[in-house]
Computed example of a mutant assay.
Amino acid sequence: MRQTDRHDPTSQERFPMTQLPPAALDSARTYQRSMVPVMFMTWVAALLDAAGVTAGSRVLDVACGPGTVARQAAERVGPGGAVSALDLNPAMLEVARTEPAPDAPQIAWQHGSAQALPYPDAAFSAVTCQQGLQFFPDRPGALREMRRVLEPGGRVAALVNRAHGENPLFGLLNAAGLKHVGVPLFAAPFSLGDREELERLLTEAGFEDVEVTAHTRTVRFPQPETFVPMILQGAAAAVPELAALSVSQREALHARITDDLSGWVAEHTENGELVETMGAHLAVGRR
Score class of each variant (00 low, 15 high):
175 A>S: 12
151 E>C: 06
144 R>A: 15
145 E>Q: 13
158 A>C: 12
127 V>C: 04
142 A>M: 05
178 L>S: 15
130 Q>R: 14
135 F>S: 07
155 R>V: 12
129 C>Y: 08
135 F>I: 10
141 G>H: 01
143 L>K: 05
154 G>F: 03
151 E>Y: 03
167 N>P: 00
175 A>K: 14
148 R>F: 02
186 F>S: 05
169 L>C: 10
186 F>K: 10
171 G>D: 03
159 L>K: 00
167 N>L: 08
172 L>G: 11
155 R>L: 14
143 L>Q: 07
139 R>H: 07
179 K>Y: 00
170 F>Y: 15
160 V>W: 02
136 F>T: 12
163 A>W: 12
154 G>C: 05
186 F>Y: 13
165 G>V: 11
146 M>I: 15
179 K>F: 01
187 A>P: 13
142 A>Q: 05
176 A>H: 04
135 F>K: 06
130 Q>Y: 03
143 L>V: 07
129 C>G: 04
176 A>Q: 02
160 V>K: 00
155 R>Y: 15
130 Q>G: 02
157 A>F: 04
151 E>S: 12
178 L>I: 00
135 F>R: 01
162 R>T: 12
179 K>T: 15
178 L>N: 13
143 L>Y: 09
162 R>P: 06
166 E>G: 10
165 G>W: 15
180 H>M: 07
157 A>Y: 00
128 T>E: 06
169 L>M: 15
160 V>N: 00
166 E>F: 14
141 G>D: 04
184 P>N: 03
155 R>G: 00
156 V>T: 08
146 M>P: 11
187 A>C: 09
179 K>M: 11
184 P>V: 06
183 V>N: 15
138 D>C: 05
131 Q>N: 12
153 G>I: 13
175 A>G: 11
146 M>N: 12
182 G>L: 09
147 R>T: 09
134 Q>R: 03
127 V>R: 02
155 R>N: 08
170 F>Q: 07
135 F>P: 08
174 N>G: 07
182 G>S: 02
134 Q>N: 13
158 A>Q: 04
144 R>P: 13
152 P>E: 08
168 P>C: 02
126 A>K: 10
185 L>E: 00
143 L>S: 03
165 G>A: 13
163 A>S: 12
186 F>N: 07
182 G>D: 09
187 A>V: 14
145 E>A: 09
170 F>R: 06
152 P>M: 10
138 D>F: 13
153 G>R: 12
136 F>M: 11
130 Q>C: 07
133 L>I: 11
188 A>S: 11
129 C>N: 11
146 M>V: 15
157 A>G: 03
172 L>P: 11
179 K>C: 15
162 R>M: 10
150 L>K: 07
152 P>G: 06
179 K>R: 14
132 G>I: 08
184 P>W: 07
186 F>L: 08
126 A>E: 08
166 E>P: 14
167 N>M: 05
174 N>M: 11
167 N>T: 07
138 D>E: 08
175 A>M: 13
147 R>A: 07
144 R>E: 13
157 A>W: 01
175 A>H: 14
156 V>A: 12
163 A>N: 12
145 E>Y: 03
128 T>D: 00
133 L>S: 05
142 A>V: 05
137 P>G: 02
155 R>W: 14
175 A>T: 14
